[in-house]
């Protein structure tokens, strides 16, 4: 077993993405804490230009794993190529960012290798070189400390924003780049991926709104959305929503805020009856001010709130609308 920390640098459409650098930051920190060395790995077909970009990060080397069958991402292709590399190098940790792509193949990779994968972590505690990973459970109501029990290699992914791109250490000189051919034949890839696309142009662009009043499942029924609309009108803002509200058709999809919806940063974001799951938070935590009204004091939304009210939104919002109207009139 080596002391290598292998970092998976995700590329999308032949571009190194922010999650890739966040994974590099995580890998560098783990290496510093465990006395290991960092190797960055990028997969694809003819991606050596990406390797030189990655080589700017401090590491003991960048490994380019290439095959024509890796030209487009598929779980079969990626899991097979990485399994080959991991079997031969026997790293101690393999570090990922918890992206849609990683969710799609990393559990398969772990199962193929017969090793553990602790997914979607916020960070870790270092107990004399033994790493205990921290992750959210019960949609953010609690945190759990989780440790690996079997043999290394250990696979671990970190939630977006757990490590920062700007904390990546740059090397004094570019790291060395080596290229290996992946053992993936075209007929071993069973799925055929199509192009990425977006649905027809969205009717509302919430990214420009100065005030957003967003509703979550705490609004209880579609007819109650009118209350939120009145608050939005009083504030001169737009309506937004958590995913379940759009899933249920209570508001159109283009009002959805979060990892699978829009990312917004208004001056004021009002969260009414929204628990604040990470997938929602990533879409709104850049807001200048957040007012959260939620009857559960433990709701994770309060972690990103400037102003908080623990209570029933149906008791708070009507007088709030009233007071805002008064203030505007006066």
């Amino acid at each position: 077993m080596s002391n290598e920390i292998l970092v998976f640098a995700e590329q999308q459409s032949r571009k190194i993405t922010r999650p890739a650098w966040e994974a590099v930051a995580a890998g560098q920190k783990i290496a510093a804490d465990t006395g290991g060395s960092v190797t960055l790995i990028v997969l694809g077909a003819a991606v050596s230009v990406l390797a030189s970009e990655l080589a700017a990060g401090e590491s003991s080397g960048v490994l380019v794993v290439e095959a024509p069958a890796l030209a487009e991402y598929t779980p079969d292709g990626y899991a097979r190529a990485l399994a080959g590399v991991i079997r031969s190098r026997q790293p101690r940790y393999v570090v990922f960012s918890h992206t849609y792509q990683v969710r799609d193949f990393a559990p398969k990779l772990a199962a193929a290798l017969g090793v553990g994968f602790i997914s979607d972590c916020l960070g870790y505690h270092n107990e004399s070189g033994r790493l205990i990973f921290v992750r959210q459970v019960f949609q953010g109501k609690f945190n759990a400390d989780v440790e690996f029990t079997g043999e290394a290699p250990y696979l671990v992914s970190f939630q977006a924003g757990s490590f920062r791109e700007d904390s990546v250490r740059r090397g004094a000189a570019a790291a060395s780049v080596s290229t290996v051919a992946a053992e993936v034949a075209p007929d071993q890839v069973r799925s055929k991926p199509g192009e990425r696309f977006r649905e027809a142009k969205q009717a509302v662009d919430l990214t420009q709104a100065e005030v957003i009043v967003a509703v979550g499942r705490g609004i209880k029924a579609p007819e109650n959305i009118d209350l939120a609309r009145k608050l939005a009108d009083a504030l001169g803002g737009e309506l937004g929503a958590s995913r379940p509200i759009c899933d249920g058709g209570w508001l159109p999809m283009d009002r959805q805020i979060g990892s699978s919806g829009q990312t917004v940063a208004p001056k004021l974001y009002v969260a009414l009856g929204i628990s604040g799951a990470i997938q929602h938070q990533v879409g709104m935590k850049g807001s200048r001010n957040v007012l959260a009204i939620n009857k559960d004091r433990e709701a994770p939304i309060f972690e990103v709130a400037t102003y908080g009210v623990v209570g029933d939104l149906f008791e708070i919002v009507p007088p709030l609308i009233e007071e805002i109207r008064k203030s505007k009139a006066g």
């Binding site: 959210q136 609690f142 945190n143 690996f148 029990t149 908080g308 009210v309 007088p319 709030l320």
Partner: peptide, 30 residues
């Protein structure tokens, strides 16, 4: 045989700088 084990579950530390408002609906609104 498990490949991972939960050692502890706990309430996450809250960010201290949320300002909370209490009172009647009307007080809070004001």
């Amino acid at each position: 045989a498990p490949k991972q084990r939960i050692t502890r579950v706990y309430v996450p530390e809250k960010r201290a700088n949320t300002e909370f408002f209490e009172g009647s609906g009307k007080d809070i609104a004001a």
